[in-house]
């Protein structure tokens, strides 16, 4: 018999990085407007995590909480003390306490944002470490369970995370649990080849999770999973917010303008005069 210690990773062994949204303002608004509370959410998620662990003996689950001020690992099934997903509750409580202590403002306008960029980066770091652990490792993927609106200030960081996930061939699955769609997650899944889903029935979250997001990367080759309806990635200009098909792009910071400017309003680079006879001399898009 082969010793258990030797790694025997088949192609359907998964490392599932789950990012859960713990923005308290978002969950308060959910409490007020829907019947889907944080404890319901946790019930569904914990059941899902346990079923992932039961699906294959070698599956590994890591949970990262995306808080309002910070993010942190709250569960890792590879540590011997954490065999069941319920173990994350204690750590999650500590995390929320810490997140609260980091809060400066007494209240927030709207529901604020959770630190998606931070938790995405942490997930990718963890995966990079696994990649470096040796030639045999579980197939990693990221699942974002996200409800807070997209934070415009995190745009650059989130996009960088998405691109690095794309480069390391790590799919980002996303499940929008709030009332709004998330363009961040839509793009993340689209670019990395993951699945984006916004459940129509909140109370059926577990069913969505186990039907769609439990599938390992190997099995996805044989299955029909929900496809995106097609994303409109057309840009609008920075200057007037008009949707444009063709425009000018700053070669330094990639800002988009509908007409030629002398200076980039985003990064301050000076543009040379566009040559009249050759309009393609200045960078053009589509």
């Amino acid at each position: 018999m082969t010793p258990v210690s030797s790694k025997l990773y088949a192609d359907d062994v998964s490392l599932l990085m789950v990012l859960i949204d713990t923005n308290p303002y978002f969950w308060s608004s959910m409490n007020n407007n829907t019947s889907f509370t944080f404890s319901k959410f946790l019930s569904h998620v914990l059941a899902f995590l346990n079923s992932i662990l039961l699906l294959n003996q070698m599956n590994q689950v890591v949970v990262i909480a995306s808080g309002y001020n910070s993010c942190d690992y709250v569960f890792d099934s590879s540590t011997s003390s954490m065999q069941r997903a319920e173990c994350l509750l204690e750590k999650l409580e500590d995390f929320v306490d810490k997140d609260e202590s980091l809060s400066r403002e007494e209240s927030v306008d709207g529901v604020g944002f959770s630190l998606l960029s931070g938790s995405l980066s942490m997930a990718l770091c963890y995966i990079q470490r696994v990649f470096r652990s040796g030639p045999l490792h579980p197939q990693p993927r990221i699942l974002c369970l996200h409800g807070s609106p997209d934070g415009p200030g995190q745009y650059v960081a989130v996009m960088n995370s998405i691109f690095s996930a794309q480069r390391s061939m790590v799919p980002i699955d996303s499940c929008a649990i709030g009332s709004q769609h998330s363009a961040f997650l839509q793009q993340a899944s689209y670019i990395t080849g993951g699945v984006y889903l916004k459940p129509q029935v909140s109370d059926g979250l577990f069913q969505y999770l186990s039907t769609v997001f439990a599938t390992d990367l190997h099995s996805r080759g044989f299955l029909q999973l929900p496809r995106p309806v097609g994303v409109d990635f057309r840009a609008s200009c920075f200057c007037h917010k008009n949707t444009i098909d063709m425009g000018y792009i700053c070669s330094v910071c990639l800002s988009i303008f509908c007409k030629h400017h002398k200076k980039c309003s985003t990064c301050g680079s000076n543009f040379g005069e566009a040559r009249k006879q050759d309009p393609s001399a200045s960078d053009q898009r589509r």
Binding site: D150, P152, G153, Y155, V156, M159, Q180, H181, A183, Q186, Q187, K198, V229, G230, V231, D232, F233, R234, A235, S236, C237, F238, K241, T243, V252, C253, L254, S255, I256, S265, T266, C267, G268
Partner: peptide
């Protein structure tokens, strides 16, 4: 160093259309 005055411009530039496509 790349200095970007306000990264939110990029967000605005991209997200509006994506949201429209998602139908909400």
């Amino acid at each position: 160093l790349l200095s970007i005055k306000d990264p939110r411009d990029y967000f605005d530039s991209q997200q509006a259309n994506a949201m429209k496509a998602l139908g909400d």
